[in-house]
Structures are given as structure tokens and as C-alpha cells.
Design a protein around this nucleic acid. Structure first.
Lengths: 231, 231
DNA sequence: GCGACTTGGTGTATAGTTTACACTTATGTC
DNA sequence: GACATAAGTGTAAACTATACACCAAGTCGC
């Protein structure tokens, strides 16, 4: 039993580069799964798998993520498609890579799901990766760093309620450079995209900061008028 | 005779959205091929075709372009991968779309190659397109418009030797808005990326303009130092 | 040969944006 | 209540972007 075609076809897979922000450790993390089988048994790889009949690429990416890591709510965007004939030793495989942003607090430990080891790693010192996943990670990071500056996707990495300092730290971690506190606040508040929740942090050993949330509706309205987000 | 696999596999194709700039008509053009066979016989589509064994996606795109239109020297960049199950009535087909920029002067008439009709169309009023190619064109245009502002890819659309007015017109056509002549010249010359060829236009019925070429080497050098091109 | 036509080429002043920079306030801990 | 920690706040200077109009050079037609 099998599926027969007149011409050879490459396999088609999806891979998800899932980023999470660890505010406590001030570090950007990536979610990886340890491979149990060859090729590359023991190495780490992005969650992903074969595209099935009658599903879109994005559905496929979401399904694989759900199956392998339990993650469901996330920001997902297509990154790039990798199709070099030698990238999978089992045969020509084209993979459509996605990158995803999740609120780390919603998906914290998440180790050992269905017998597979799943863990978060610092993007700056990942373990040895299977296939061409190191190259994919590099591209995903470059995309995230570029995109975070002109699209308000950073909020996807923060809890729904956040302080201005947390938001600033997010940008500092992703962009790997310090930002001036007063200028940052002036700029971000000036956009009018943050809603002051009139609520402050609890249980912090210093002056409690004001909490905000991102005003997505207003962002959509402003974009329609030609507004450009920029950090 | 055929190729048999344990699980079903979608077909994998590449499609190329080739842009050319018609300075005489002040119009951005896209290269299309008229389909002879069903599905969508008679409609127009991007050059493209099936990815073969042992070729990279980019090689595949270049090969198809060469075969179907004779175009070889061009700027080529991956755009997006489209894989909705219903996009090809013959069955699940994943297409990796590329967009390409060519110097129209190098590939002018190009109609009727191997019995297939090939022609340039204005991007603003294309003919009826096959498959989901209207959606792909829309995305390619959006990408071109975004990218032309922060990467010096516009030069790929101009002849090697060009005038500042031609360069300005290119941006006006692609971005669909007028630019101030003095400000444009100040900005573009200020980047130091143009080499004054100390040569002027010939055979024009008015004062002949200075010719320039793009200094690609210097651009690479500046990028390495952290320079950002921006119009 | 000269006037009309077409496009090339040039500078400055103003408004807006970005950057650099340091102290006071609020809260919990010891 | 002194200390530690992070929150919160304004201004001046440098730089960048924008708006704007005329003369120069060459061809065409008479």
C-alpha cells in the first residue's frame, strides 16, 4: 500500500521556531525537542513534521506544535522555505519554517510531554541542532530583530499586563542594545497604543510600577490611517 | 512506472513574479505566460513549474525562468510559500513563490518563445490570473514596495548606467507617490553609493543628464559598518 | 539664428525628530 | 528610619526631513 506519482516528489514538512522571553533571566529563549531517532538522534530540533493532505501550511504548523509541545495560543508567521536537496539525509525534503512568539509564563516547564524531552534554551547558546536548524534559527532571530522594530509583535512575548520597564527590557534583550528610559517612555506612550490599567504591580520589593496593556484595536485603526509603528 | 511513498505527498512547485520597469511608459510591469492547458487554459500565470530531484528551490526557479522566458541574469529572492489544499484543482500543491527584478531593456519583446505567449503587463491592470496568482502578485508588490525603501534593490530594475531623474522616477513609480527632486538628489548623493560616470546621455531632445552607476562594492562595505539604506 | 520647449541641476530656511543626560519618588527590607 | 531598588519625570542641542523656485543646457521648428 502506498501513494504513487508519475514524477518524484520531495517531502514537505513544517518547522516552528518558537521564541519566549524569560524576563527573570533577561534572556530570549527558543523551544526545542530532543530527537529520539536517527537521523540526528540525541540532537535538538524545532517542533515540526510532515504536512498532511487537506491542511494548510499554517494549520500544519499549529497542529505539530500542539501535538509536540501542547502550545496552542501564539503568534505565528511564515519565515522561509528551505529546500536544499542535502538538508535531510533521508531524501529531498522541503521545509516551510515558521516562527512563533509565545508568552513564556503560559508555557513554563513543559519538559517531557509524550516521552520526548522538550525544553527552552537561550538563543545565544543553543545545543547542537539537527538538520540545517542552526541556519533556520539564525534567520528566525534576524527576522525577529528586524520585525520587532517596525511591528508591535513584541507584546506577544509579554504577559497581557506589563510595565513600561518590562517592555523596555524586552526590546533591549531582543535588540541587544540599551535604550534610554526617558526617550523610550516618551516614544512608546506618544504612540497612544498602551492602555493604562490604573493598577500597579504587587509583591515587588521597590516602588510598584504602573501596569499597561497593548491596545490592539487602536493599533489596527491607526494602521488603517497609515500609521507606522517604530522603535 | 512511478514513484511510490508510504504517505501522500503534495506536489512542490516554484513560481516567479518577475518585475520590470518600463521607463518610457512610466509603468511597473510583470511578466506572465498564457496557459495552453487546463486547468485555467487561456488565463495568465507566472513562469514556474515542478521542483526536480537534486536541485535547490532557487535553482529550480532559475531553471524554470530560463526555460520559459529565456531570462537568466536577475535579482531573485524568495517571497512566500503558498500551500492551501484547494489552490490547484489537480491536487494538493505547495508553491514556493519568488520575486525577481530584471532590467526590462535586456528582455524587451520576448513574446512567443516555444509556442507559449509570454508578455509584460502593467501591475496595475493585469489580465485574469490562474490559480491564486492574483494573491501572489499582490504580496509580491507589497514586498517590493516595502523592500525598495530600505534595500538598494531598485537599481536591479534600471540599466547599468542611469540618470538621477530615472532613479527618482523608479521610486515614484514603485512607491506611487511623487518625490521632491532636490531632496531626493540630496539624499541619494549623500549616501555616496553612486559613481558619477563623467558621461552624459546621448540623443535626448533636451539638456543631457549626468550618468551614474550603483557602487555595489561600497554598499557592501557600508553595510558591514552598520549603514542602513533608506529612501 | 532665435525663441520656445523640455528636462537637468542647484540652496536655504523651518519644522519636526532624535538624542543625551540626572534627580526625585515610592515601596519594601533590615 | 536608613537603605536598597526600581519608577517616574523634562529640557536643550544636534540632526533630519520637508517645502519651495529659478537658471542652465540642449533640441526643435520657424
Amino acid at each position: 500500500m502506498g501513494y504513487t506519482y508519475q514524477y518524484p516528489r520531495p517531502s514537505v514538512t513544517v518547522d516552528c521556531v518558537v521564541f519566549g522571553l524569560d524576563l527573570a533571566a533577561e534572556d530570549l529563549k527558543v523551544l526545542l525537542i530532543q530527537r529520539k531517532k536517527d537521523p540526528f538522534a540525541g540532537l535538538w530540533a524545532f517542533p515540526g513534521g510532515f504536512v498532511e493532505e487537506d491542511e494548510t501550511l499554517e494549520e500544519s504548523a499549529k497542529r505539530e506544535l500542539q501535538e509536540e509541545t501542547g502550545i496552542s495560543r501564539l503568534y505565528l508567521e511564515q519565515l522561509y522555505t528551505f529546500g536544499d536537496p542535502g538538508r535531510d539525509p533521508r531524501g529531498h525534503t522541503v521545509t516551510v519554517a515558521y516562527y512563533a512568539l509565545v508568552k513564556l509564563s503560559d508555557h513554563t516547564p513543559k519538559a517531557a510531554d509524550d516521552a520526548k524531552a522538550v525544553d527552552w534554551f537561550s538563543v545565544s547558546k543553543p545545543p547542537k541542532l539537527a538538520f540545517d536548524h542552526a541556519k533556520i534559527l539564525k534567520m528566525a532571530l534576524a527576522r525577529l530583530r528586524a520585525k520587532v522594530r517596525y511591528q508591535p509583535i513584541g507584546f506577544e512575548l509579554l504577559p497581557a499586563k506589563f510595565t513600561l520597564s518590562q517592555l523596555q527590557r524586552l526590546y533591549e534583550i531582543v535588540l541587544e542594545r540599551p535604550l534610554d528610559k526617558r526617550n523610550f517612555r516618551k516614544k512608546i506612550l506618544g504612540m497612544g497604543l498602551l492602555i493604562d490599567l490604573e493598577e500597579t504591580q504587587k509583591d515587588v520589593a521597590h516602588r510598584a510600577a504602573q501596569l499597561y496593556r497593548f491596545d490592539e484595536e487602536r493599533y489596527r485603526g491607526l494602521v488603517a490611517e497609515g500609521f507606522n509603528f517604530e522603535i
